[in-house]
Amino acid sequence: MKSMFRSLALLSRLTYLRYTLLGELFTNRRFVVGFTIFIGLVLFSYIGSLYAYPDPWDISIYVGSTICAYEYRYLPPSLGHPLGTDQGCRDIFTWLVVGLKNSLYIAVIAAMISTTIATILGLIAGYRGGLLDDIINFLANFLMVIPMFIVLLMLVSYIPPEARTSLLVAIVIGITSWPGPARVVRSMVMQHRSADYIDIAKLTNFSTIEIILKEILPNVASYIFLIYINSFSQAIFAEVGIGALGYGPWDAVTLGRTFNNIIGGGLIFVGAWWSFTTVGLVVVMLSYSLLLVNLGLQHVFNPRLKLTYYAV
């Protein structure tokens, strides 16, 4: 590991790669480790689904019928079932792999929605100021006072089960998680608002929208990227949380639902440690890798934070 970093650093020094943004990123230890783990997990979900059974609900391939036979319940790990089976004869490895893939999809959409809302509101509030800013700031503060997980759970539980699709869950996660990011974008925009280049843009008759899109947005783009990654890991946590409680999407197997299945199926008391340890480890590795990526990016994009590197 250490020699790998040393050779990477040497390579970057030789090729002057070090002085580009990407070079600096890939010599950052935190970023490299986090990025590797994350890519590894994504690959695991795609390569694993080749090995797994095609349908997480279909047990007839290895049981022989659709009715779960007693001797196929709570199977220990074997070549056919790397993580064993649960109380309904379902293959846990398939559930893990498919769940990881679906959870990543949900998190991508949810993070996209929340980042978009946060960017738009943050840009408007930060650049225009005045009453609009007061209203948006008040709303964001209000929503940040209340723990978002409870609000999310409230919204999701009010939706009837039949209507709870993965897209809808992603949208609900997205629209409940914009306040924090919006405040960050707003404060970043406010730092740029009174800069000289904005005054020049105003003098050259740029319209407000042009100034926001052409002058301010490129300058805060790196922060928006950071916010996206942070929202992504928050969304995964949110989905696993509501899914484990049984309020996840009903049309897809997700990591949260796999957890719910493990808790509800009594796999803990049967002693099937391989199942819950692995599923939990995947969630932990996912969020930890994203944290490392975020810290690495912060280190490169915002060197002022070098001393503290705040926990995200």
């Binding site: 946590f237 696993v240 493990i262 808790i263 819950f276 340890t277 932990v284 930890y288 944290l291 926990a311």
Partner: peptide, 14 residues
């Protein structure tokens, strides 16, 4: 940082 990232329910299960 690793400890703070752990989901409480998973730790409880273990």
């Amino acid at each position: 940082q690793f400890i703070a990232q752990l989901p409480t329910y998973w730790l409880l299960i273990i």
